[in-house]
């Protein structure tokens, strides 16, 4: 298997009112291509921070983050954004759709910005993706006209628009009901089954057995739970 993501002693510290707060302790993590990983932990534990480092939304204060062989920390913002668009699809907790574009246009926008999908195929691909997440009939509606679950599925479709190798989702079911939660989990599972690396931050203990690996974060310290007992923490290359 190929290593797609590697964290080497990556940490994150914030300066707040002249105080340093380490949100993520130095962490080593290796993710292979095609793995389906859950990142769990209580609120404020550092889950989002870990995902932000992986996606390049945030830069590590220490250590290094490599995605598909590229050190994200060494790139300019412009190159980072482009590479992120090609390699990593992001699903946010609060959907983050562009409110003045329809569901279809939100997906096409992602393809327009990255440019890997030929222009004459973008619209059809967008429809296909919307169909895959079961919201094709909402294609021409603005986000304000969609339910939470529908918006999140559109967001997932957008994240898949450029056929990224990695899909990262930060609390994707945090604002959804149980029915939509299940739908979204199924979509992620399907993506993983298709060979995509999927990393999902969640505090929902249900369905953890679907994942290949479960990484628990508590007070900035990452621990990988063993497969046989997801409740028994075991260290992951602790520093």
């Amino acid at each position: 298997m190929t290593t797609i993501i590697q964290l080497q002693a990556a940490s994150k510290t914030y300066e707040v009112d002249k105080r340093s707060i380490t949100v993520l302790q130095p962490t080593n993590l290796v993710v292979e291509q095609g793995e389906f990983i859950a990142v769990t932990g209580p609120s404020g534990s550092g889950k989002s921070t870990l995902l932000n480092l992986i996606t390049g939304i945030d830069h590590p204060s220490g250590g290094m983050v490599t995605v598909d062989g590229t050190n994200f920390g060494g790139l300019s913002e412009s190159k980072l954004a482009h590479l992120r668009g090609k390699l990593v699809g992001i699903v946010f907790q609060f959907f983050q759709l562009i409110p003045t574009l329809t569901a279809l246009e939100n997906i096409v926008l992602a393809m327009d910005l990255v440019g890997v999908i030929p222009a004459n195929k973008r619209r059809d691909r967008a429809f296909t993706l919307l169909d895959q997440v079961s919201v094709a009939d909402q294609a021409n509606k603005l986000p304000s006209r969609l339910s939470g679950g529908e918006q999140q599925r559109v967001a997932i479709a957008r994240a898949l628009a450029n056929d990224p190798a990695v899909l990262v989702a930060d609390e994707p079911t945090g604002n959804l009901d149980s029915v939509n939660c299940a739908k979204v989990r199924d979509i992620f599972a399907q993506c993983a089954a298709d060979g995509r690396t999927v990393i999902v931050a969640t505090h929902d203990p249900r369905g953890l057995d679907q994942f290949d690996r479960v990484i628990e974060i508590s007070d900035g310290v990452t621990t990988e739970l063993a497969n046989q007992d997801r409740s028994m923490p075991s260290k992951v290359a602790a520093q």
């Binding site: 996606t55 939304i57 913002e77 412009s78 954004a81 482009h82 992120r84 668009g85 090609k86 992001i90 946010f92 983050q96 759709l97 562009i98 409110p99 926008l109 992602a110 910005l113 990255v114 957008r158 994240a159 450029n162």
Partner: peptide, 16 residues
């Protein structure tokens, strides 16, 4: 500002 952040997150570069 938020929309600009979103576009950056999904791959948009400065000029785009």
């Amino acid at each position: 500002v938020r929309n600009i952040g979103v576009m950056k997150a999904i791959g948009g570069r400065h000029g785009q």
